[in-house]
Design a protein around this nucleic acid. Sequence first.
DNA 1: GGATATTAGTTGATTTTGTAACTAACAAGG
DNA 2: CCTTGTTAGTTACAAAATCAACTAATATCC
Lengths: 144, 144
Amino acid sequence: MTDDRSFDLQGFLPYLLAQAAEASSLKFQRHYKDRYGMLRTEWRVLFHLGRYGPMTAKQLGDRAGVHKTKISRAVTALGDKRFLTRHVVADDRRQAALHLTKAGTAAFEELYGAARAFDQQLMALFSGTEGDALKRCLTQLAKI
Amino acid sequence: MTDDRSFDLQGFLPYLLAQAAEASSLKFQRHYKDRYGMLRTEWRVLFHLGRYGPMTAKQLGDRAGVHKTKISRAVTALGDKRFLTRHVVADDRRQAALHLTKAGTAAFEELYGAARAFDQQLMALFSGTEGDALKRCLTQLAKI
DNA sequence: GGATATTAGTTGATTTTGTAACTAACAAGG
DNA sequence: CCTTGTTAGTTACAAAATCAACTAATATCC
């Protein structure tokens, strides 16, 4: 290993990832936080239910890769906002299927559109091939 | 705007960034957290002081883009670990220059090496041009 | 020089996250 | 059945991040 000091935080991949993630997250927050008072996990839960339909908290957590306590709190918060209802599963009363309400679906529709638009806005910074490569790299890094 | 539902969280850039950032951060934590009991901001402060030499908390915060309360707490923690000392600036007693101690420098040296190695390990996932492009994209996104 | 405004840094209160322990319901083996 | 083990989900407590208010020192303007 060389002894020089040319290596810098600006070149350290985890740092760059954290900076880019924080910047984009802060910017997109305005849609779900300012407008609906949601936290990030709430937005993710809403997204999954809107995009894939009703499912239990367990299925949500598995699919989204989010811990069950976070899911539980997000579900409670979304319930308080009247964005979803719980329907206990008939043959296993531990589980409850989560259904978006009308209001929840409306919020999802708006945020889904905002997300697509924001993604396009970000991707416009890059050429098509560059942007595709970026997403592939990030997907790979997420699995590390 | 089209009405289809093909767009997915896995394709949403802020989500991908968050996942990749969290994964890499969790993996690198082991160096500064498990070994030295440091938090991420402490590691960043240590890095800046080791890499660029003594400076005040204000300069640190400006350079690292970190809020002063986070800097203040990280500096206190690093002081408790005897990794740095404060030297009040003679002609402005509000400010204090932060100097790494011998132990602080040693920790920096080790973590600096670990960071370089970890960066190389991550970058080995990609081709040279791909990795370079990735870092350029991330740098751009950090400024959004 | 003295009132007012700024700046560096700290502290405290509130919110959010992470971790572990817990309850309730079901499953399996005897 | 009935003990033991698992699973879904919640709750309680600790660690950490965020934001506002504060102190002390300096700068500015009249």
